[in-house]
Design a protein around this nucleic acid. Structure first.
Lengths: 122, 122
DNA sequence: CTGAATCCCTGCCGATACTG
DNA sequence: CAGTATCGGCAGGGATTCAG
């Protein structure tokens, strides 16, 4: 059943696994930074189902304000998770989609889901 | 090579996967909340290597202040990740260790590490 | 030794109004 | 349609000091 060698009690043999204070280049920090912020995971979830326009995202997440949606998309783009594509002409249309790296977040979200779905009993 | 069935584009068939706004009972939110905050993952990393006292944690993470360490341990305990054990007598000694649930964070951190370790190229 | 109390500063995020 | 500009409330987190 176990399909990976059990190396639980040790993260990879990498110097970044031994830092004594938060480091922006730590892979775990990078991943958490990409998912950081309210609404971020929900935006990623929407895009995991296909590319979307700004309005479609607003419609899917009605409570999310324009400003925050803009901010989330900008941060996700900066993290290499989301790609923007403007179609020229009028009215302006922009399609958002996940990059390959963004699609790689699927298993990560799955791991988070699996852990969080367990009962909180110690 | 692929050792898991590809169900990328779909999180579990659970109503909580379809919420349209941040929900505290969403498993992903629960997991991210447990790991939330600066220093949190480093504290967990320390405890993944064995139980520790307050002072040992301070020594391992010298820049971390008392207040924040106290806060992180309290939050992790509340999340069912960390267990506290006071040994009676003087001076007061407290040992912190991971619960089984806390040890379950190993694979989660591994998934975050793996994703973050990839180059940020789109 | 293991924290709790207090102060302060910064950054997130929501609401509203406005622009290319 | 797809954003930007501005303002304000509030919580995160660091330093310092005090307590059980």
């Amino acid at each position: 059943m176990a399909h990976q060698t059990v190396r639980h009690p040790g993260l990879p043999d990498d110097p970044r696994a031994r830092v004594t204070e938060p480091a922006p280049d730590c892979p775990v920090e990078i991943a958490l930074a990409a998912l950081h912020g309210r609404w971020t995971t929900l935006v990623v979830r929407e895009l995991l189902q296909g590319d979307r326009s700004f309005s479609e995202l607003r419609a899917a997440l009605p409570v999310l304000s324009d400003k925050v949606l803009t901010d989330r998309l900008a941060r996700l783009a900066e993290a290499g998770v989301v790609a923007r594509e403007r179609t020229p002409g009028w009215p302006p249309r922009v399609r958002y989609s996940l990059t390959p790296r963004g699609r790689g977040l699927g298993p990560v979200l799955q791991a988070l889901w699996d852990w969080g779905a367990q009962a909180a009993s110690s």
